[in-house]
Nucleic acid binder design. Structure first.
Lengths: 165, 165
DNA sequence: ACGGGTCGGTTCATTGAATGAACTGACCGT
DNA sequence: ACGGTCAGTTCATTCAATGAACCGACCCGT
């Protein structure tokens, strides 16, 4: 964004949220974090954004308490993990309306194997499923990128499980 | 955002969604649309963004089928109204973590008067409440802007009800 | 019919963020 | 000591955001 990333004068919770996660690339960085990406070079290779931007975004997210830096790994905090339902809803909306080829990944509740509904709830258990209890399953037959992250995400994975052992 | 608003090469529904609603100001414009704002000058006065940016965003949203232009009014389409739960969740997240003074507005289910939970569901009826069935109630004692929209939003309103009669 | 005001934009120069390539320095394994 | 990877920083270039000025259509009162 250009010229001031803030939304001064808006007495509105949405404006506060967008000042943190509303900049270009930020929500995609967080999506990767939910997929288990933790290292600078992995974000870089998978998202293809400029290094300077990634560095700046990670720093801002750590300052906002959304990510925490442990050594050279960035991990979602509780505050960050609470974004999962909103992120999931937004992604399902994009999928319904703008993904010509249908979903590229589906999400299910680990406990019961039921596919989540668009709101992020488990239809059989009821209620929003936290990310630790969600498994992501790639839809087969999709092109797979040639970076290590894309290859790792071609296998089913539980959210938040680190990509590297 | 600068240099390409798209996220090429991401086979991801979230990237598709962000190409539509991920640019600066866009989600705030849509929030105002849920509050009943429909006219160019009302968006302008309430958000305080440059006219050129508002014009460009409204045009893009119409092209994407999120808004529809009727005469000189912009209205949410069904596709646009489906964004409500995601928008609400993001706003509640911002409110929990970054609104020092607590909520400035609260939201209740018109049918039963119950306050919505953070996921946008009605605790007593169960299930996500569509925006037509949500009433917004401003919290008293807040500073009110001096534009017509801010004054109108200082009264309780049902979402999507046009601001002007 | 004319003049003034509002509305819904477009045009334009300036500013600053995003981009991408090059560079730096720490750490590792051999 | 050497080469390679990793995690950034620096820097020139490009392009979107900003804000002010401008423009035409429409309405209203005279």
């Amino acid at each position: 964004m250009a010229l001031g990333k803030d939304y001064r004068g808006q007495d509105c919770a949405l404006a506060r949220a967008l000042e943190i996660v509303g900049e270009r690339w930020t929500l995609l960085i967080l999506r990767d974090a939910f997929y288990g990406v933790r290292r600078f070079s992995d974000f870089l290779a998978h998202l293809g954004l400029p290094r300077a931007v990634l560095s700046s975004r990670l720093q801002a997210l750590v300052e906002a308490g959304v990510l925490a830096k442990h050594g050279c790994e960035y991990e979602l905090t509780e505050r960050g993990r609470e974004l999962w339902p909103a992120l999931h809803m937004l992604a399902r909306w994009g999928e319904r309306h703008f993904s010509a080829d249908g979903p590229s990944r589906v999400f299910e509740h680990v406990a019961c194997g039921t596919r989540l509904d668009p709101s992020g709830s488990c239809p059989s258990c009821g209620g929003i499923v936290p990310p630790e209890e969600v498994r992501m399953l790639p839809v087969p037959g999709r092109p797979v990128g040639d970076d290590p992250v894309s290859r790792a995400l071609a296998e089913p994975r539980r959210l938040l499980d680190p990509l590297r052992p």
